[in-house]
C-alpha cells in the first residue's frame, strides 16, 4: 500500500465523509474548541460526564478529511471510558501519529490504528491531533482553545 493509500484508508475516507457523533450536545458539561489557524480547521468537542465516566461525546465544526475522521473516530473510542482511560488513549494516539505505529500501544489503540498512516505526513499531524487536543482540554475543563499551531 502506498503512503497515500495508507493515510487515506477507506475507514478514514468514510469517517471524513460521514462523521459519527457529529452534532452539538445540549446538556454537555464540558466544551472545548480546537483551532488550527493556519488551515482554518475548527472544531468543538462536547462531553457529558457521569462521575468519572464519559457518558456522551460529540463534535461539530469543519476541516479536512483527516481532522474530521480523526475527531469522528475519537468520539467512538472514548465514549463510555473513564477520564483516565481516555487520557491513555490520547497518549497512544499521540505517539501513533507523531512517532509511528511502533511507538504506540496497540492495546490502547484498537480501531484507531487506522490513523497509522499520518506519521509519514508531518504536515498532517496537526490535522489528526486537533480534536484530540480539544478533548484533552475538555477533560481537564480547560477553557483555552486548543491550537495545533
Amino acid at each position: 500500500m502506498s503512503e497515500l493509500d495508507d493515510l487515506y484508508q477507506e475507514v478514514i475516507l468514510d469517517h471524513g465523509r460521514r462523521p459519527r457523533n457529529f452534532h452539538a450536545l445540549p446538556g454537555a458539561d464540558r466544551v472545548a474548541e480546537g483551532l488550527n489557524p493556519l488551515c482554518g480547521d475548527h472544531y468543538k468537542v462536547f462531553l457529558r460526564l457521569e462521575g468519572d465516566r464519559i457518558a456522551e461525546v460529540a463534535f461539530e465544526g469543519s476541516g479536512c478529511a483527516i481532522s474530521k475522521a480523526s475527531a469522528s473516530l475519537m468520539t467512538g473510542a472514548v465514549k463510555g471510558k473513564t477520564v483516565g482511560e481516555a487520557e491513555r488513549i490520547f497518549t497512544a494516539v499521540h505517539a501513533l501519529i507523531t512517532e509511528g505505529p511502533d511507538r504506540a500501544d496497540p492495546a490502547e489503540l484498537g480501531k484507531l490504528a487506522v490513523l497509522s498512516g499520518v506519521s509519514a505526513f508531518p504536515t498532517r499531524v496537526k490535522c489528526a491531533s486537533l480534536a484530540w487536543h480539544a478533548l484533552k482540554n475538555a477533560l481537564h475543563a480547560d477553557a483555552q482553545v486548543a491550537s495545533t499551531e
Binding site: L4, Y8, C39, D41, A65, F121, T123, R124, C127
Partner: peptide, 22 residues
C-alpha cells in the same frame, strides 16, 4: 467539498507543489 488541505497532500504525492489555505 474536498478540503484544500487534502487536495494539497494528494497533489504533493504526484510531485505537484501548490499552496492550500487562506
Amino acid at each position: 467539498d474536498v478540503h484544500p488541505h487534502d487536495i494539497g497532500t494528494v497533489l504533493d504525492r504526484e510531485g505537484v507543489a501548490i499552496r492550500t489555505g487562506h
